[in-house]
Design a protein around this nucleic acid. Sequence first.
RNA 1: GCCCGGGUGGCGGAAUCGGUAGACGCUACGGACUUAAAAUCCGUUGGCCGCAAGGCCGUGCCGGUUCAAGUCCGGCCCCGGGCACCA
Length: 872
Amino acid sequence: MSETTRSLPEYDPQAVEAAAQRWWSEHKSFQAVEDPAREKFYCLSMFPYPSGRLHMGHVRNYTIGDVISRHQRMLGRNVLQPMGWDAFGLPAENAAMAKGVAPSAWTWDNISYMRRQLKSLGFGIDWSRELATCQPEYYRWNQWLFLRLLEKGLVYQKTGTVNWDPLDQTVLANEQVINGRGWRTGALIEKREIPMYYMRITAYADELLGALDGLEGWPERVRLMQANWIGRSEGVEIAFPYDAAATAAAGRDGALLVFTTRADTLMGATYCAVAAEHPLATAAARDDAGLAAFVEECKQGSVMEADLATAEKRGMPTGFHVIHPLTGDRLPVWVANYVLMGYGEGAVMAVPAHDERDFEFAAKYALPVRPVIAGTREPGTTWDDAFAEHGVTINSGPFDGLEFDAAVDAIAASLAEKGLGKKRVQFRLRDWGISRQRYWGTPIPIVHCADCGVVPVPDEQLPVVLPEDCVPDGSGNPLRHRPDFLDCRCPACNGPARRETDTMDTFVDSSWYFLRYACADNHTAMVDDRVSYWLPVDQYIGGIEHAILHLLYSRFWTRVMRDLDLVQIKEPFTHLLTQGMVLNDIYFRKDETGRLIYFNPAEVEQQADAAGHPVAVLLADGSPVESGGIGTMSKSRNNGVDPQLLVDSHGADTARLFTMFTAPPEQTLEWSDEGVQGASRFLKRVWKAVHAHVADGPASKLDPAALTKSGIALRRQVHQALVKVTDDIGRRRTFNTAIAAVMELLNSLNRADVATPSDRAVMQEALELIVLMLSPIVPHICHHLWNVLGHPGAIIDQAWPSPDRSALVAETREIVVQVNGKVRGRVVVPAEAADAEVRAAALADNNVQRFVGGQTVRKVIVVPGKLVNVVV
RNA sequence: GCCCGGGUGGCGGAAUCGGUAGACGCUACGGACUUAAAAUCCGUUGGCCGCAAGGCCGUGCCGGUUCAAGUCCGGCCCCGGGCACCA
């Protein structure tokens, strides 16, 4: 590089980015066109909820998608990267309540602001396919498919439990229940049973579970979480016949049905327990005021499983008994708050000796413990917990001495003989309740007629359009007060009728939006042929928080559409990347009432106090604030970073580089102002290296045969970096290490001595490759630098480069030598050296000799090309 | 409570299939340039011992397998995600 002082052009991100974005827009670079002759690549990021402004999590998510998309494009694929809006949901209703603005207006304002932000980040999105789930053109197909499922019996009605706020007279979301109280009213929340529509996802439980094995492009942990969520377990359904009192109360002969995976412990059952909602509990409570009060108490609080499972175990006897199906013993039936009505039969047989929860309950209420599995403890000794592992049966009469499987088989056979039990499979998965007592969602296409009952809306009357000018006030669904929506004609008898006011769960919207991108302009059908070209999604990217619900519903919905012959695929997403959350520091003060006031980290500075200890100080008043550690960026903790400020101050490329470099995509990412500086500095260094190089005039053509020794070594580093970056971006998706490899290479180039024309040719090649390798990550600056390097076309049309294999060949290798597993030296050997030769060189090393000393060499392990371990 | 992840220098992280722990970046410190500052460039930076060569210790904790463990196995601790109406 010449040492003459001269002024190189300054890196001005705003100008560079505006120019690149203008070029892409003018050339419609990202408009995807179906072309059966070309291999397609459908790269999809989870669509955002239009909450107001982009947050760093969005920037991270969409940068990952854009890097993969641009890389695939360079590999020659026909890439589709669409974008849309998950536009229905609760926050719009909350904003409406807070600001008195209609959810629709609020949502569309947010969409136009966020669309502009996405464009300023330079994502290669095909905006011609944009959709929003709150458009009738979209949600009419939610309604249409709902009707098809209704016809097939895959949608049905039953009651479901919701959180009821008795003051506001409204149903609350789990999020709106805080410590068992309504978030606005503070009233104690009650559980309430209301009629709802359900989708029969359990009909697909076996298939959804079985197909997980084939999802090789999914992270193992997501597959595991889904498998556990579906929760297939094999067990025995056992009938415990009612005693006379229970029979009388139930009004007929009957038996308490329970499901258990531990039929081998049946001889140890000492009581049965039912959920508070169980019919037997209801029957018992009729004549027992104390029990009635307890059952009512169990109906207080939220419906959340986490709350139920962590609640203190409590119960009361029903006074009824059931008959043990094998021993004939009378067992008491209890109502217990740890039994879930939603799983199995809502009743359990309790074996305190071999189940943790039963044990805790039995200990509290002095119920008998009867060990029937040989464990680590002798029967008769004091136990402090249950022995829940499998083992050999004891104290079980004719079933003694059996291993788990044999015991279950023998007991199941004996029960079957008496007609009191059979083996069956139980899933943890429950059917999907889709009814919401909310305004801002897809209207359920049902009409209620006094004469005809529940009548589906005919297809030709779709969509049932949601009025857009409602402003919810927190006291229930405003649709109930809208005669223009409510009043209609019955499709069956044409008499006066009333529309259903419940809307659909927003997970319905997101269960198939990825199909609609392929044909968003089709207003006569839900999907068309273009879906079979683009689907399945080749790469799906989104937050790990969606690992179960959204992804499982989408898998279910896709299968439903397959069974309706609407699509040919069964799995919607071939490869899945689950990105980690974005975190930032949390700072707060407590006010007089003990409430926490949060301060944005941007308003806080780290200083040292008089004693030299670090202390966080609010810039506004110079007084300290408390540190609350680190946590996900959220409005409630006021620790978000507005990506717009970053884009405005440093440019989109710096924002993109920072999020890609700071952490691998699947891990949490911690925000750091200094890290942003580092990213920006690196881009300036790339800019400078390219401009300094071209300032010395054009380089001559590269002749690999005419290189100096240092030129060969430098060129080897260049192509090694290319091999690594190709693998990191294309296979491993570890963008952080890809960037590190390019940084390392740039450091080498800056140190290199460029004296001869052949050196300059190597430099030209190296800089071109650096710009090509970085172009998926920081596309704007690379768009510019590609032209600076003397190329007339656009870098976006360039192919991903291939390494020159001959440049990678090295003559020697460095081998690490260990003695007893500790590194004691390094030797340089010819690259092709045989093991014996490497071994000899290793043993000859001075420091190695020092540690071997006079001891006998017991073993020498040679790992070819890497290391030698001498064991003495 | 249940299911799934994670824990490595002052900090973010690297180590891809059991084979050199700390790549790359940040911070801090020292130097160059500058009237000065910023920016930029160069150097040092896990701890301890040593003039040096080099050595000892070190990947949340305890134990195990192996020639070799951040990586595998068993038991714990802490942090994060999900738990079906936030999306």
